[in-house]
C-alpha cells in the first residue's frame, strides 16, 4: 500500500562529513504522503544532521534531496514554504510572548493573522499566550515550537525529538496531537526520536539510522512482526520430542535442552501439544517468549542501553 503512495520526500546517497569524518553516510530515505515516518537512532547517530540537510540548513557533502518532487539545492524557498520544522530544541525569543513569537514567523510566511489564534488553540496555549515565553515550562516551549511549525499550514512537518525532556503526560499529549494531524490536516510527518517506544504508537513507517547509516526502513508492522515471540515447550524428553516433531514436519529447534517451535497460531500449537501427549510425552509448560521492539532496535543499532 505504501509503495504506490505519492513520494513526498526522497534522499539518495545523502552524505555529510563534519570535521573530516562522515556523520551521515549514503542515506536513502523515502517518505510517502500521509506517512508518519519515525526516524529512529541512538544519540549521535546522525538524525539531527540529516534533518538539518533536509531543511536546507546545512549542505550535503554528497547526495541529493527531493521534497515535493523538487530539488532542495535549486528550489529551497519553494519547498520551505510548505515545510514546518522543529529542530532539536525549540527556538524562541524569551523576552517576547507567544503571540509575538508567532508573529515574527508569520510575517515571513505571509499567512493571515488568524492562523496565530488557530495554532495557539491547537497546542492549547491560548491562555498563556500573553506571557513572556522565558517563563514557560519546557513542555509549553515545546508546544509553542510545534505551533510555530504548524503556522504556515505545512504539507510536511519535520519534528526533531519533539518530546525531548517532557514528562510522560507531556509525551502522551504531544503524541496525541501528532497522531491527529495527518487525519485532520493531511500532513505528512517526519519525527525523530532515540526511543522506539515513543514512536511505535504513532509511526506508520520507520527508518532506523545508526552510526550515520540507514540500516532499516519499512512499515512499522514489519518491525512488529519481528517482535512476535516464540513458543517454548517444556517437556520430559526434549531430544525425543524434537525428533518426533521434526519427523512430522513441524519446524522446531532445540537449543541447550530448550524446545522452541516457530508456529504461532493457536490451532497449530494445540495440534503440536496433542501430538506430543499422544506419544506419551509429558508437557509441563507452553510458554511464549516475546522480544520487545526495543531490544530488536538495540540489536540493530548495536548500542548497549539507550539513554
Amino acid at each position: 500500500m505504501t509503495t504506490n503512495k505519492e513520494t513526498i520526500l526522497e534522499t539518495s546517497g545523502l552524505t555529510k562529513k563534519l570535521g573530516g569524518k562522515p556523520v551521515v553516510k549514503d542515506v536513502n530515505l523515502r517518505i510517502g504522503r500521509g506517512d508518519i515516518y519515525g526516524f529512529l537512532g541512538p544519540n549521535g547517530a546522525g538524525k539531527t544532521t540529516t534533518i538539518r540537510m533536509l531543511l536546507g540548513l546545512a549542505k550535503p557533502t554528497r547526495g541529493s534531496i527531493r521534497i515535493f518532487g523538487k530539488d532542495i539545492s535549486k528550489d529551497r524557498l519553494a519547498i520551505l514554504r510548505s515545510v514546518g520544522s522543529l529542530v532539536e530544541y525549540p527556538s524562541y525569543y524569551g523576552h517576547l510572548n507567544a503571540i509575538e513569537n508567532l508573529e515574527a514567523v508569520r510575517r515571513l510566511l505571509t499567512v493571515p493573522k488568524n492562523r496565530i489564534d488557530e495554532v495557539l488553540s491547537v497546542v492549547r496555549l491560548t491562555k498563556d499566550a500573553k506571557r513572556p515565553v522565558k517563563g514557560y515550562s519546557l513542555g509549553m516551549k515545546q508546544r509553542l515550537g510545534i505551533a510555530t511549525a504548524l503556522l504556515g499550514n505545512p504539507e510536511l512537518l519535520v519534528l526533531d525529538e519533539p518530546t525531548n525532556g517532557l514528562d510522560p503526560a507531556g509525551i502522551l499529549e504531544i503524541r496525541e496531537l501528532i497522531k491527529s494531524l495527518p487525519k485532520s490536516h493531511g500532513v505528512t510527518i517526519l519525527i525523530s526520536s532515540h526511543l522506539l517506544s515513543e514512536i511505535e504508537q504513532m509511526a506508520t513507517r520507520v527508518g532506523i539510522i545508526a552510526k550515520g547509516s540507514l540500516i532499516y526502513e519499512d512499515r512499522i508492522e514489519k518491525l512488529r512482526e519481528r517482535s512476535q515471540g516464540h513458543i517454548h515447550l517444556g517437556v520430559s524428553e526434549p531430544e525425543e520430542a524434537w525428533k518426533l516433531l521434526s519427523a512430522s514436519g513441524v519446524k522446531a529447534s532445540l537449543v541447550e535442552g530448550k524446545l522452541t517451535v516457530a508456529e504461532k497460531n493457536n490451532a497449530a500449537i494445540a495440534a503440536i501439544v496433542a501430538r506430543l501427549v499422544g506419544e506419551r510425552h509429558q508437557v509441563y509448560r507452553v510458554e511464549e517468549e516475546k522480544v520487545s521492539l526495543e531490544s530488536i532496535f538495540l540489536d540493530m543499532t548495536g548500542v548497549e542501553g539507550s539513554l
Partner: peptide, 18 residues
C-alpha cells in the same frame, strides 16, 4: 545576539526567506 540567545537562526533560516 537576539538570534544567538536561543539559537533562533535555525528557525528563521528554515523559513522561505532568502
Amino acid at each position: 545576539g537576539i538570534d544567538h540567545q536561543m539559537n533562533t537562526w535555525k528557525q528563521t533560516l528554515a523559513l522561505p526567506v532568502n
